Computed example of a mutant assay.
Amino acid sequence: MMSLQIRKERVAIYPGTFDPVTMGHMDIIQRAAKQFDRLIVAVLNNLSKNPLFSVEERTDLLRQATQDIPNVEVDSFRDLLVNYVRQKDAQVIVRGIRTVTDFEYELQNASINHNLDPDAETIFMMTNPKYSYLSSSVVKEIAHFGGNVSDFVTPEVEQAMKLKFKRMDGEMKP
């Protein structure tokens, strides 16, 4: 008699602020999506940060950027990451690493998360070297001063940043 073994869906969470989503983030999303049945890109509503885009704007931009990746869903949360991981019945937290500094920070977070929930595994993915210098903060600064960010973000994000900074500049002028 043959027994049927049902494989549990492999679900990973890729959490972040994504303010805005960059090509470095997209690199991790595309590669992680190949490793899991479902990848949830989870926008953190971080109350200690002053983001350029609202949570709704960031989730919308991520949905546009990932619309061609069928096993990616975009969500947001404002809870402890391990609670969110449990809520989504995920097994893995995905984190991108650009530098040694990133690794130290992410290792500390992974250790804390593991302490809070021993079942919350974290995997680190090295960012493609061509994006290792790229951060959302740098992209925002370049865009704020009218620089070309087309190599760093999707066309939708580039357009959204232009509109956002145009509005902000208009509000500042008398």
Rank of each mutant, 00 (worst) to 15 (best):
S135Q: 02
L81T: 00
N148V: 10
H114E: 05
E106W: 09
D79R: 13
G96N: 07
I112V: 14
D102H: 02
V85Q: 13
A143K: 05
Q91W: 00
R95S: 11
V72D: 07
N83C: 10
A143F: 12
V82F: 09
I142P: 04
E104C: 07
A110M: 12
I69V: 11
L80V: 12
I69L: 13
V85N: 03
V85A: 08
S132M: 09
V138W: 00
E104K: 14
T127N: 04
N148D: 15
I123H: 00
I142Q: 03
E73R: 11
V85E: 07
M126W: 00
S111T: 11
N115Q: 14
Q108N: 12
R86G: 03
V82L: 01
R98G: 02
N115M: 14
E141A: 04
T101S: 15
N128D: 15
V72W: 08
K88M: 14
N148Q: 11
E141Y: 05
P70A: 11
Q87H: 14
V82D: 02
V139G: 09
I112G: 06
F103A: 09
V100A: 10
E73G: 10
K88S: 08
P70I: 04
V138C: 01
Y105C: 03
N148H: 08
I69F: 11
V92F: 15
L107M: 12
N128F: 05
R78P: 08
A110S: 14
F103H: 02
H114C: 09
F145D: 02
G147P: 04
